[in-house]
């Protein structure tokens, strides 16, 4: 018994001694600028430990399990309501934070967190596909190229391995809304995807850059930030802005329930609300941010990247949190497609 008390006491001393100076960040893979972290550490004296995850669902499972010990997490906008409903985030009341006024209009009080009680914006971008224009010289700004590929691209197509983005893009191409709950619409989606399947080389969301740059795939579903890197390696790799509508997403910073270093998390959030800091992040990852005034801190490459500026008139479609029914239909399409 005494031993236990002693151990607890020691544990408390140890953890409080460390608590002044620690911050545990859990973010998407390859998505945090090392320079940003170094600057934060230098300015605050806080030691940052990074771990990474591969999907919102991994993050969800991890947080649902309770004791994970993270102070900062970065969920996508369509998952924020889920995390909030499941009571996995603590309130940060961003409106009271220093730098809140820096948040650009479109990202202040967004639909997924209407009073910025839980989140502030981190990065936003789009999802479409990258085409090797050496292989195919025609019009790439349409989903036609992806789903009913021309001769040159057949058998050279790489798709994501998760249903949601694939199905959403098919729905947009067919002229329907994302997260469809209509069986007829979803049957059409399945038919379209089955028709496309013989031309698909691989369904995989990992190693996209490698397949594009090595010539293993001439067209690949992709995010705009990664497409910048692809183009840097090979100028022929161009990012498509399908005229039917481009899927858009926004990732957000939140503090999970049970965070051990809440104050440090707040310090970090206030830190990245500063334009000069979030610009470091954007320069690294290749995605836009929701902080006004950061443009002047962006490097030349980012400022001129075509991947970040869709042609005028291209509709931007925010992906949504699909209902249970819609998710079920998506899964049915997916397992039937890949059975």
């Amino acid at each position: 018994m005494k031993l236990a008390t002693l151990a607890t006491g020691l544990g408390l001393v140890a953890s409080s001694a460390l608590a002044d100076g620690e911050l545990y960040i859990y973010n998407w893979t390859d998505y945090t600028s090392p320079e940003l972290i170094e600057k934060f550490e230098a300015e605050t004296g806080i030691t940052v430990t990074m771990d990474t995850y591969d999907s919102n669902d991994t993050l969800l499972a991890k947080l649902k399990s309770g004791a994970s010990g993270y102070d900062i997490v970065v969920p996508s906008h369509n998952y924020v309501p889920i995390f909030v409903a499941e009571e996995l985030f603590q309130k940060i009341n961003a409106q009271d934070l220093e730098g809140y006024s820096n948040i650009a209009d479109g990202f202040r009080n967004p639909p997924w967190d209407s009073a910025n009680e839980y989140t502030v914006p981190w990065q936003w971008g789009s999802t479409s596909f990258t085409v090797n224009t050496d292989v195919f010289g025609g019009d790439i700004d349409t989903y036609e190229t992806l789903f009913r590929p021309p001769e040159e691209l057949r058998g050279q197509i790489g798709m994501f391995k998760a249903p949601s983005d694939v199905v959403d893009m098919a729905l947009i191409y067919l002229g329907y809304g994302v997260c469809s709950e209509s069986k007829d619409e979803m049957r059409e989606v399945l038919e379209l995807l089955e028709e496309q399947k013989p031309h698909v080389k691989v369904y995989n969301s990992d190693g996209i850059l490698e397949r594009l740059t090595s010539g293993d795939a001439a067209l690949h579903q992709n995010w705009n930030g990664y497409s910048i890197r692809a183009r840097t390696a090979d100028p022929a790799l161009k990012y498509a802005f399908p005229k039917e509508g481009v899927l858009t997403w926004a990732d957000n910073i939140a503090v999970p329930v049970g965070a051990q270093n809440y104050d440090n998390a707040i310090k970090f959030i206030e830190f990245i609300l500063q334009p000069e800091n979030i610009a470091i992040q954007s320069n690294f990852a290749g995605y836009s941010n929701g902080i006004s005034g950061s443009a002047e801190f962006l490097n030349e490459e980012m400022a001129t990247a075509p991947e970040l500026s869709p042609p005028d008139g291209t509709p931007m479609v925010f992906s949504e949190t699909c209902s249970e029914n819609a998710t079920e239909l998506q899964n049915k399409v997916w397992t039937t497609l890949l059975q």
Binding site: T29, D30, L209, E210
Partner: peptide, 12 residues
Amino acid sequence: PIYIYSLVRIGI
């Protein structure tokens, strides 16, 4: 392995 997996995601 977790670290390597994270690198694999962007291409080794």
